[in-house]
Amino acid sequence: MTEQLHDAAALEAQAAGNTAEGAKEARRPTRADGRATRAKLLDAARTIIMEEGTDRLTIDRVIKLAGMSKGSFLYHFPSRDHLLEALVDDYANHLADVQTSLEAASPDAAHPLLASYLAWYEQFQEGEIDQGSSPLVALVMASRRNRRFLEPVRSWYRHYFDRLEAMSAQNAPDAAYAPGTQGCDKTEALLLTLAMDGLFFHQLFGTDVLTNEERAAVTGRIAVRSGNSKGMRKTAKK
C-alpha cells in the first residue's frame, strides 16, 4: 500500500511538472506575438511623426505610447534609424497593396494602371483611403539626413513608371491617341500620373486651392484618357 501511494505521488508530481512546463511553454512569445509587437511599435511611431513631426520621434516616446518595454523595442529596432527604415518599408508595402487592390477593381478600363491611380487619388482625397492623411511628408523630412531611407518608396515609384510605360506601349504601340479619345501613349500617361501626384501633394502640404469644378475637370480628363470615364466619380473637396 505504501509503495502504491509512493508511485501515485510520483506520478502526480510528474504530472504537475508537465503542467508547469506546459504553462511555461504557453507563455513563450510566438512569431505572431512578435509581429503584433512590431506592428504596435510602428503604429506608435507613425502616430508621433504624423501628429508631431520626426523631430519628436524618440525611443522613449514610442515605447510609452505603445505600452512596450525598451527591451522589446530594441529587439525589433536596434536604433531610431532602424525604426525610420522600417516605417518607410512599411509605407512602400502599403503603396503596393493599395495599387494592386485598386488595379484589380479596374479590369474594364483601357488603361487599368492609370485608372487605378486616379481612383486612388479620388478615394484618398475623400478620406476613404488612409483617412485622407499620409506619413510620406514626415518620412521625407526624416530622410533629409540620409537619403537612402526613401529608397523603398523610390523603388516602388520606379516599378510603377516602368509598368506604366509597358502598359501604355501595349495600348498605343504606334502613336498617341487623338485628343479627346480614350487611351493615351506612354508620355501622356506619365504626364497624367504626375498631374495626379501634384493634386496629391498639394493636399498633403495644405496648398490645395482648386475649386470643386476645377478639380473635377482635371480628374474627368484623366478618367477619359485612361478609358474609365464610366467609373469616374465627382471629386469633392474636404
Rank of each mutant, 00 (worst) to 15 (best):
G180Y: 04
Y160N: 05
R144F: 06
V140F: 06
I129M: 05
L164E: 08
L150G: 05
E151F: 00
A175T: 13
G183M: 02
V98F: 06
E122N: 12
Y157I: 12
S101H: 15
S116N: 01
H202C: 06
L164M: 12
T211C: 01
L113Y: 09
M141W: 14
E151S: 11
A175L: 13
W120M: 09
Y177W: 09
D162N: 06
A96I: 07
L199G: 07
A166C: 06
A142R: 08
E151M: 05
G180C: 10
R145M: 14
S134V: 11
N146I: 03
A110Y: 07
A142I: 11
M141K: 13
A178D: 08
P152V: 06
L136F: 15
L118H: 04
S133G: 15
E188F: 02
S101C: 13
G127C: 14
F200Y: 14
A96P: 04
Q123M: 11
L118E: 10
E188Q: 02
H94M: 12
A105V: 01
A110T: 03
G132V: 04
T207L: 14
V137T: 15
A110L: 13
L150K: 00
Y157G: 09
Q203T: 08
A175C: 11
I129P: 07
E103D: 04
F200K: 00
Q123W: 14
A105D: 08
R158W: 02
N171C: 12
P112F: 02
S106I: 05
C184W: 01
R145K: 12
L164N: 08
N93H: 12
R148L: 08
P112V: 02
A189H: 01
L139P: 02
V98G: 05
S106K: 09
H111M: 13
L139F: 10
Q99C: 09
D162E: 13
L191T: 06
A105Y: 04
D108C: 00
N171V: 03
N171E: 14
A105W: 09
L192T: 00
R163G: 09
A109E: 00
S106N: 12
L95W: 03
A169Q: 05
V140P: 00
D208A: 13
P112C: 07
A195L: 05
D208L: 14
N146D: 14
P179V: 05
F201E: 11
D162W: 15
L136H: 14
A119Q: 05
D208Q: 15
T187S: 07
L164C: 01
P152T: 03
F149G: 05
L199V: 00
H159I: 12
P173Y: 03
A195P: 00
G198M: 07
S106L: 11
G206A: 13
V153A: 10
A96F: 10
A166W: 03
T211F: 04
G183W: 01
L199K: 00
